[in-house]
Design a protein around this nucleic acid. Structure first.
Length: 249
DNA sequence: CCCTGATTCGC
DNA sequence: GCGAATCAGG
């Protein structure tokens, strides 16, 4: 088996979904778990929580325990680094359930709905208070509510002005008109997670059609999410994205 | 033992 | 570029 464009796309989709390498290998067929991992790395896909790297920064590593251990430990594993999240994960995080009543002074980030996605955000939302030493140039990610986060430098005394007032999160199906809409709690890997509307809005919901197997979206939305590359000369430069856009490799 | 992902290195 | 072999933590 070779890595056709189609198989690479499926690998990317499932990797982004958080499926394990062995699950991906089984679904693709014809490749081993190692092949999937190797390919994912060669593609530069995001690294995943590794059992080996989980608690890594303990003791100063001796010169060389093993050749592998002596290999350069790069920024890849730096825990404080805020990684990009796949769009769907960001949405899940933004729509994650919060305490029912009004905003508490320090709401604990709700990590239950999307642990993998919420973990880095939680680290960013509640950084160790930069009070330990004076004058360290510490960059802080300050939560501005359900909408997201704003980067705040050490000199920025004022809390950043949120782009919009925090919206009150609504129950999953508060009204009759939501009765047949697909909410966060109905999501699973067999139904289309294409978002309709915006998190926090009363009618925010998901497509809910049957998902294209191996993909997070239905066939129609896969057609929107995964588009064939045009020849370079036929491409128009993408418009600047408000949040900086995905990392380009 | 099983699982996991990361890394290396011969091909 | 590919992936088996290997490593190492859960």
């Amino acid at each position: 088996m070779s890595w056709t464009d189609e198989r690479i796309d499926r690998l990317k989709a499932m990797w982004a979904e958080g499926k394990t390498a062995s699950a991906i290998a089984e679904e693709l067929g014809g490749v081993s778990r190692n092949a999937v991992i190797g390919k994912a790395h060669r593609l530069g896909l995001d690294s995943r929580p590794s059992p080996v790297k989980a608690g890594e920064d303990k003791t100063a590593p001796s010169a060389a325990a093993t050749p592998a251990a002596a290999a350069p430990v790069t920024e890849r594993a730096t825990p404080s680094r805020v990684r990009e999240k796949p769009p769907i994960a960001a949405i899940l995080e933004a729509a994650a359930p919060m305490p029912e009543d009004e905003l508490k002074p320090a709401p604990a980030p709700a990590a239950a709905a999307a642990p993998a996605a919420a973990a880095p955000a939680a680290a960013a939302a509640a950084p160790a208070p930069a009070s330990g030493k004076a004058g360290e140039p510490v960059m802080v990610y300050r939560s501005i509510g359900p909408g997201g986060f704003v980067r705040q430098g050490p000199g920025d005394q004022q809390p950043p002005i949120p782009p919009a007032p925090p919206r009150r999160l609504v129950p999953a199906k508060p009204s009759p008109e939501m009765a047949d809409k697909t909410g966060l709690l109905e999501l699973n890997d067999r139904i289309c997670k294409w978002p309709l509307g915006h998190p926090g809005e009363p009618d925010f919901h998901f497509c809910g059609q049957q998902a294209n197997p191996g993909y997070p979206y239905c066939v129609q939305h896969c057609g929107v999410a995964y588009q064939a590359q045009l020849p370079r000369r036929d491409r128009r430069p993408p418009p600047p994205l408000p949040y900086g856009g995905p990392r380009v490799r």
